[in-house]
Computed example of a mutant assay.
Amino acid sequence: MTDHGADLLIRAAAVHTLVPGQAPQQALAVRGDRIAALPPDPNGLDHVVSSRTAVHDLPGATVLPTFDDTHTHLIFAALGAHDVPVHQARTIPEFLDLIRQRARTTPEGEWIRTTTNWQELNLAERRMPTAAELDQATDRHPVLVKRGGHNDVVNTYALRLAGITEDTPVPPGGVIGRDADGRLDGRLIDNALGLVEHLVPAPDRTRRIDGLRLATSQYAATGIGTVRDCAVTPEDYAVLLAAREAGALSTRVRALISALGLTGAAQVEDLPVRMPPAIPPSARSSTSSASCATPEPSPAVRSPTQTRRVAPQRHRRRHEAGLTHMATWACPVPAEEGSGRPRGGPGASSAPAMCPGSSPPSPRRASGSAASWNGTG
Rank of each mutant, 00 (worst) to 15 (best):
R11G: 02
I10Q: 01
G80F: 02
R127K: 02
T2I: 14
L240H: 11
D135I: 02
G357Y: 13
P332N: 02
S285R: 14
A366S: 15
R127W: 00
G368Q: 15
E120R: 10
D41R: 01
V333Q: 14
P65T: 02
G261N: 14
S286W: 11
Q306I: 02
R213T: 03
A231H: 04
H141F: 10
G186P: 05
S367C: 11
L212Y: 08
L256W: 04
P142M: 12
P295V: 01
Q22F: 04
G32Y: 02
G225N: 08
L193P: 05
D179V: 09
R160Q: 13
S291G: 15
P299L: 06
S372L: 03
V49S: 13
A158T: 06
P42F: 15
V19L: 14
C355G: 10
E166D: 14
G347T: 05
L323E: 00
P59L: 12
N374G: 11
I35K: 08
P297C: 12
D57M: 02
L241C: 08
G32H: 06
G32P: 03
T156C: 01
N117K: 04
R343P: 03
V175F: 09
D190W: 09
A243M: 11
V154T: 03
A89N: 13
L18H: 14
R113V: 09
I75R: 00
L323W: 01
V55D: 05
R274P: 00
L188A: 09
H141N: 12
T376F: 12
N155W: 05
S339L: 13
R183W: 07
S250V: 04
L240S: 09
Y219S: 09
A124D: 03
T62I: 15
T263C: 12
P234E: 04
G149I: 12
S258I: 00
V154P: 01
V301K: 04
P171C: 07
A103Y: 02
R11S: 07
D41W: 05
A311Y: 07
V268Y: 04
R90K: 13
A14M: 11
H82A: 11
G173S: 08
P107K: 09
P363K: 13
L8C: 07
R284T: 12
H319N: 09
H16V: 13
T233H: 00
E133W: 02
L18Q: 14
D3W: 07
Q136P: 01
L260T: 12
A12P: 08
V55L: 13
D57Q: 11
V84A: 13
H198D: 06
R314P: 04
Q101W: 08
W111R: 08
P312D: 04
R365A: 15
T233L: 00
Y157K: 04
S350P: 06
R183V: 07
V145K: 03
R317N: 08
T165C: 05
I75T: 07
A54I: 06
A265H: 10
P280C: 13
P276Y: 02
R208T: 00
A248Y: 00
A202C: 03
R213S: 04
T294Q: 12
T168C: 09
L144V: 13
R160G: 03
A351W: 15
T17N: 11
